[in-house]
Simulated assay, not measured.
Amino acid sequence: MVLVNTLIPIFVLIGLGLFTRHIRLFDSQSIQVFNPFILNICLPPLFFWSTASVALTEILNLRFIAITLVASLLSGALVWWLAKRFWNIQHPADRMLLSLSGLNPNTIYMGVPLFTLLYGSHGTLPVIISSLTFNILFMGLGMALLDHLTQPEPTRIRTLLVRLFVKNPLFMPPLLGMLWSACGLPKPEALSGLMTLLAQATAPVALFTMGLSLYGQSVRGQLKPILLISSIKLLVHPLLALLLASLFWPLPRIWMEGVVLANALPAAAMVSVFALKYERQVSVVSSVIVISTLVSLLTLSGWMLILPYLPALRAH
């Protein structure tokens, strides 16, 4: 029942976005309105409150972060090796973009709604920590390396840091929340009510916008790499996280569920923005995002069916 009550609403809202684009109730310009609302109005308070309302020791869950990093690096390395060994992709910038599509999950538009429906607005901390990890270490460093590999005059480190830490609306709020928590500041009830309202708006608007952005996207490029990268993202990536959490860095049940689900999310749309920016692997990366998003209805269902057995698996 949890499976039905969680995943069906998610994909119905995505489908509603697709349908309204199809009947021309909304157009591509609408995405330019909804995206800033999500990224600048809904998510920063949610990220702030999710970290401000829990102990700092819970936020700095080093085992969770280590599992996320190692599982992602292994998934990305597997895609890199396949691209070089079997797909004859020579330029490292091309291989990096493919690797990013195989390791970077859609924590914002799919992860936050999924965790909100599963655990409530106070249960989004695992996906927020995952989002910070991916945005800072993988997307931030990835952007710096892609600039270095493709630009005749690479972007200066200072410019990259400002873009990553200052202009990114999802970086400072959780850090301020950590500071709030560390200082033991009070949590006014009125502020809590505001955060709850914004959290309730985040999930449906993010999913609807995702449907709007998927409209008109088609699968282009070589089918074999697209399917393999999508499979790595949806199956291998979370499986690696599960194995690491079971065998090397045991986690409490809620955190084990969180690390598996966060890594089981489909490929992040931000990777296609990078592909367009550097004009490399655009068709393959975009197709991976479309395929992994559609197929994730099945794969997420599978992982959610497995979740109740995770503590028993870990006990062995």
Rank of each mutant, 00 (worst) to 15 (best):
V260P: 09
M270R: 06
Y119W: 08
L297S: 07
A203L: 04
S292V: 09
M96N: 01
I128C: 02
Y119F: 12
N61G: 02
G123I: 06
I291R: 04
I31D: 08
I38V: 15
F248T: 07
R220Q: 13
P9D: 00
L176M: 11
L191E: 03
P36I: 12
E257C: 00
G184V: 05
L194W: 14
S231W: 03
P105G: 04
F86D: 12
S283V: 00
W49V: 07
G76R: 00
Q281W: 03
P188I: 09
A262H: 13
M172N: 04
E153Y: 04
F48D: 03
R95T: 02
V33W: 10
L243A: 11
H91Y: 07
T57Y: 14
G123R: 07
W81N: 08
G120S: 07
K84A: 10
A201D: 01
M304L: 14
N5V: 10
T116Y: 12
W49P: 07
P225H: 07
E58V: 09
W81E: 11
L103P: 06
P173L: 03
M210P: 10
I254Y: 13
F64P: 02
P174H: 02
L56D: 12
W255Q: 05
G102C: 02
A262W: 11
Q200M: 15
L300A: 09
I10D: 06
F248A: 14
V284L: 15
F274N: 00
L276C: 06
M256I: 03
A275D: 12
I38Y: 08
M110Q: 13
L13I: 13
R63H: 15
A93V: 12
I38F: 08
F64W: 01
V79I: 11
G221T: 06
E279C: 11
N168E: 00
K167G: 13
L73I: 03
L294Q: 03
L235R: 06
I14F: 01
T20D: 05
R85C: 06
S296R: 00
V54W: 10
G184L: 08
V12W: 07
V79H: 01
G15S: 14
L125F: 14
G184M: 09
L160D: 05
I226V: 12
G111E: 04
I31W: 00
S99Q: 05
L298Q: 09
S283E: 13
M178C: 15
F138V: 01
L13V: 13
I14N: 00
P105V: 00
A241W: 04
